[in-house]
Simulated scan of single mutants.
Amino acid sequence: MQIQRLFALTHYLLANRSATAAELAQRFNVSLRTVFRDIDILSSAGIPIYTSQGTGGGIFIDNDFVLSKATLTSEEQKKILLSLSSLAATKQDDLSFLLEKLSGLFQNQPSDLIEVDFSRWGRTGEDKDKFNKIASAISGNQLLGFSYINMQMAQSNKIVMPIKLLYKSQAWYLIGYCQEKQTYRTFKITRMSEVFVKAETFDRKNLPVKELDKTEQISYTMIPLVLKCSAETVHRLYEDFHESQVTIAKDGTGILRAEVPDTPWLYGFILSLGGEAEVLSPLRLRNKLCQMIKELMNRYSED
């Protein structure tokens, strides 16, 4: 336990370069006496950690000190390379170069088992360019500007402090701190256009942390769906739902029972099954689908 804490303390100082004893005691849930004892142990081991008293004092680590690759296990090295491989798939040259350097350092080949394609059909270059700009702004703590169309089809220009990308409910989102609203907002990336990265930077440490946890919960109205699907298309259910939610009858037909979000995706999914599926409940969903089908028939019927 002490060894793990010593490594964690060293990594923390490497990331922050300095900290107070009280800060370290609180972070690692130990006493001040234990913190200073750990510092003595690390110093005795040759790690250049020193303390300074008075105003502006604290515990510091030499700016030129780096940890050897030996501090990372083989499994940890593989995880780092795997993560970088997925990011490099966005075609960012700087990440690919970093991946090559770390692969040589670790004496391990980067994984080529992951390919991430953020683009929609027919818009390969445009979508990848958008994701690259967003990723660049996030990693560089730079302000991000874009035009956005919300669910009410209202268009507006946004300047946000981008925090992270989120994949949820079949779509990619950007979580960012909106300068105009002075709060966190979640933006669907397919509704973003004219994306540009500003030279102006921001400090993440100055942003409210607790609010960020709330934005990650993208809430929808959930409805209990019971859907019957033919044997020929039952495989489609497994693409979007867990196998425990599907029951297969002797004739090969499948029954899906699941809590699903009441969103346009749901209606598009059901309609994509055509005549091979039937909504058994809820009745409200059946009626809405009937209305949508009638409107489609009227639209495409001959006069």
Rank of each mutant, 00 (worst) to 15 (best):
I255Q: 10
R236I: 07
L271T: 04
Y238I: 05
V226C: 05
E276T: 13
F241Y: 15
T263R: 08
A277P: 07
T221E: 15
L266A: 02
T247V: 12
L256G: 10
P224T: 00
R236E: 13
T253L: 00
Y220W: 15
V246E: 09
E278N: 05
A249N: 10
F269A: 06
L256R: 08
E232G: 03
C229N: 07
V234T: 14
E232K: 15
C229H: 00
G252T: 04
G252M: 06
E259A: 13
L227S: 08
P264E: 01
L227M: 10
S244L: 09
L237E: 11
E276H: 15
D240T: 05
S272V: 01
S230V: 11
T263K: 05
E278M: 12
F241P: 13
T263V: 07
G274D: 06
D240E: 14
G275A: 14
A249H: 12
C229K: 00
D262S: 13
H235S: 12
G274K: 04
C229T: 10
T221C: 08
T233C: 10
I270K: 03
G268D: 02
P224H: 12
E239Q: 03
H242G: 09
V226E: 09
E232M: 03
L266R: 01
A231H: 13
F269K: 00
M222Y: 10
I270C: 08
F241H: 12
E239P: 02
L256S: 12
S219A: 13
S272G: 04
I223N: 04
T247W: 05
M222Q: 14
E239F: 03
M222P: 02
S272Q: 05
K228F: 09
T221Q: 15
P264Y: 01
L273M: 11
C229P: 00
Y238S: 09
Q245A: 15
V226T: 05
E239S: 04
P261W: 07
D262L: 15
L273D: 03
T247H: 12
Q245C: 14
R257T: 09
R236C: 13
M222K: 14
P224R: 09
E278W: 02
K250M: 08
T247C: 03
G268C: 03
F241L: 14
Q245D: 15
E243D: 13
G274N: 01
H235P: 00
T263N: 08
Y238V: 01
V226Y: 00
L256N: 11
V226D: 04
Y238L: 14
A277E: 07
S219Y: 07
T247R: 12
L256M: 12
T263H: 02
Y267N: 01
I255P: 04
P261V: 05
P261A: 14
C229G: 01
T263L: 01
S244M: 06
Y220D: 04
E259H: 10
I223Y: 01
A258E: 13
W265N: 04
S230M: 11
I223G: 01
H242P: 03
A258I: 03
G275E: 11
V260K: 02
L273I: 00
E239R: 02
I223H: 07
A258F: 07
G254S: 09
F269N: 00
G275K: 11
S219N: 11
T263F: 03
M222T: 11
